[in-house]
């Protein structure tokens, strides 16, 4: 029963991850090269993408695709919960904060086992909400920067430079979260190295479920959490 595979993600989620990954890479390449315009690598990139005008064009239209992808994600998420297709497993609750403290205690050797998590661990939830809220900020601040003349007809002019610092700083923050936290957790973490394939294959081994999502596994197998092994 050790290498028994458990279905974790639907094909829709697998596709969604691919799409978001592609969008993310395009936006980061075209965006950060504009943020760090004075670096040689940025110049090289921008020139090889056909010049600053093309880079901006790519960035903006990819931003539109991103807006659609994010909207679809939020709508399907809410609709799924509304029509009881799935449970609001991503919603942060009190247990997540308790888990966070517990897990740090475990890391420091004050507890003898890691926090016992449900379908999504507190780390995954915090990352998810951080990136989701950040993405919404990115989309809106990006739109403001794209249409400054239109926006300032309703809002004070200062909104534009504020949107600029928001967009550029939030971009860096998301990039850091993804590049450090997400990549570590799905590639470099010693527990899953060389790569966590579950988002690409849609399935996960029972071993990892037991280790990482014991609450969900217990519910799936209809057994009390204390008897899980």
């Amino acid at each position: 029963m050790a290498d028994h595979k458990i279905k974790r993600f639907s094909t829709y989620r697998i596709a969604e991850h691919w799409v978001h990954m592609a969008i993310f890479i395009v936006l980061v390449v075209t965006g950060l090269s504009q943020k760090f315009y004075y670096l040689d690598i940025s110049l090289w990139l921008i020139f090889h993408l056909g010049g600053i005008d093309y880079v901006r064009l790519i960035h903006r239209y990819t931003g539109i695709i991103f807006l659609i992808a994010i909207s679809m994600h939020v709508i399907t998420g809410i609709a799924g919960i509304a029509f009881r297709r799935w449970k609001p497993t991503m919603v942060i609750n009190k247990k997540d904060f308790i888990d966070a403290v517990y897990n740090i205690k475990y890391y420091l050797g004050m507890e003898d086992h890691p926090a016992i998590c449900d379908r999504y661990s507190y780390r995954q939830k915090f990352e998810y909400w951080g990136v989701l809220i950040g993405s919404i900020i990115m989309v809106f601040s990006g739109l403001i920067l794209w249409f400054p003349v239109f926006v300032t007809r309703f809002l004070p002019g200062e909104v534009i430079p504020a949107a600029k610092v928001l967009h550029t700083n939030q971009a860096l923050l998301i990039f850091v979260i993804i590049a450090l936290w997400h990549i570590y957790n799905s590639i470099f973490s010693p527990e899953i190295f060389p790569i966590d394939k579950s988002i690409f294959t849609g399935s996960i081994s029972r071993d990892r479920m037991l280790r990482e999502h014991p609450v969900e596994l217990a519910r799936m197998e209809g057994r009390p959490i204390d008897e899980m092994q």
């Binding site: 400054p148 003349v149 239109f150 300032t152 007809r153 004070p156 002019g157 200062e158 909104v159 534009i160 430079p161």
Partner: peptide
């Protein structure tokens, strides 16, 4: 910026 409003210069610090 053709249709810039009167407060548009404020976008520049």
């Amino acid at each position: 910026h053709k249709d810039a409003a009167k407060n548009f210069p404020d976008t520049w610090l």
